[in-house]
Design a protein around this nucleic acid. Structure first.
Lengths: 225, 225
DNA sequence: CAATTTATTTCGTACTCCTAAATATCTTGC
DNA sequence: GCAAGATATTTAGGAGTACGAAATAAATTG
């Protein structure tokens, strides 16, 4: 079976779609590279900047970057090196665990991230021009694929608190540390943080308990790649 | 506008879909890398092998590879080097134009290509498990995106003759050089070649003449990036 | 047939990836 | 409370991908 065989592609929709996704994937790489050329950034560096821009603070570490880029610590460390050299990022060991190194965008880094955050607009525009019904199906379809790839461990799905299994909105309205609560890390959440990506996100509602268990087990056995 | 902003993703389907495509794209890279690790091939090498396996003979050159991988000649030449070193590919200047170098899979190359042609099966399987209606919408949607990306020059869509604007099936049934005919290169086509990918493919039927003109103009001004 | 164009290669550089090994720094168990 | 083990990261070394620029060689054009 090969989705690269043009013969199959013409009579097996799944093969044709797979090939289309392969092409889109190529184009995304290309878009990243082009944008990077304009600003002296490699694709990996762009991804790192965007990760740091939208990830929950606790996740913004070398390890978090490695997880997000789906690479090793060594590679993530190298990407951080490159960004640090360009003064877009700073490193800083965490006080509570001085092994882990927090990454933070500098002022210039913020700007650079803002300048590249629209890399995929061309793709979004193409999608936005489709009829609503098609967009719905496309959303269902792509997310089904993502879910499957996630179960196989090929991607991590980071989402924001709203919609997360562990999110308790307005759990303690008067707490100065934040009105919301995360039952996963068992800590209060300030409002702004609830709009950031979180590696511990687990969709609420129609989820098999398996997924939740899976997340719970990560708590122990973090990292495995 | 940023499809990376989790806030937008939750209320703009197009952003959510774009992000899903980004994740799938990451996973495709990952799948390629994993498969390559098992066989000592880099992602680019896998793509090159698959290109050589399914492309029409005339396209199997260093330049054709560069076009397909969306890289420069220099990079394509390097990939060819790597594959030649591994004895999976041979180089051979074309007799009719000794500047162009044809690439051909060796026996081992054929086997290697066959061994990796199913890299994306995991994705195809996920898609195949969706309801037919969703698959149709997914096909429409992804192809709309691909079409747009193609117009912007970010991908090339290579397809087989059947369905091509320039294809004349059974134009000369008795011709020993082949029963079919390509009106683009104005030459006869043997049956097996009609099932290979062709860079000059232009969809027949509901196409704007613009696309055809575009293809025609490539004839002259080949290569630009 | 000189000038140009085209297909490819060679260089030099930046970076991405990986593995393996070294360094700290926590965490545990006895 | 401290040796052993686990964790987070870094360093070093190697293959390979990319790029742009310059060099070659072989068509093509005027």
């Amino acid at each position: 079976m090969s989705s690269f065989d043009p013969r199959r592609r013409s009579d097996t929709p799944a093969a044709a779609i797979t090939q289309a996704l392969y092409r889109i994937s190529q184009a995304i790489g290309h878009l990243m590279r082009l944008r990077g050329e304009a600003r002296q950034l490699s694709p990996a560096q762009i991804q790192a900047l965007l990760f740091l821009r939208f990830a929950r603070p606790g996740a913004r570490t070398v390890g978090g970057l490695a997880e997000r880029l789906a690479t090793t610590y060594a590679t993530a460390s190298g990407v951080a090196d490159a960004l640090e050299r360009k003064a877009l990022v700073t490193r800083q060991p965490l006080p509570e665990d001085r092994r882990t190194v927090a990454l933070a965008l500098t002022e210039a880094g913020q700007q650079e991230a803002a300048a590249v955050e629209d890399v995929l607009d061309e793709i979004e525009a193409a999608i936005a021009s489709l009829p609503d019904a098609d967009q719905e199906a496309l959303l269902r379809g792509t997310q089904a694929v993502v879910r499957r790839l996630q179960e196989a461990g090929y991607v991590q799905v980071y989402e924001m608190c709203w919609g997360c299994h562990f999110f308790r909105p307005n759990a303690h309205p008067a707490d100065p540390r934040g009105p919301h609560h995360c039952a996963y890390v068992d800590a209060p959440l300030p409002e702004p943080n609830t709009f950031l990506e979180c590696p511990d996100f687990v969709p609420r509602g129609a989820i098999e308990p398996r997924v939740v268990r899976l997340a719970e087990s990560r708590k122990q056995q973090r990292r495995r790649r």
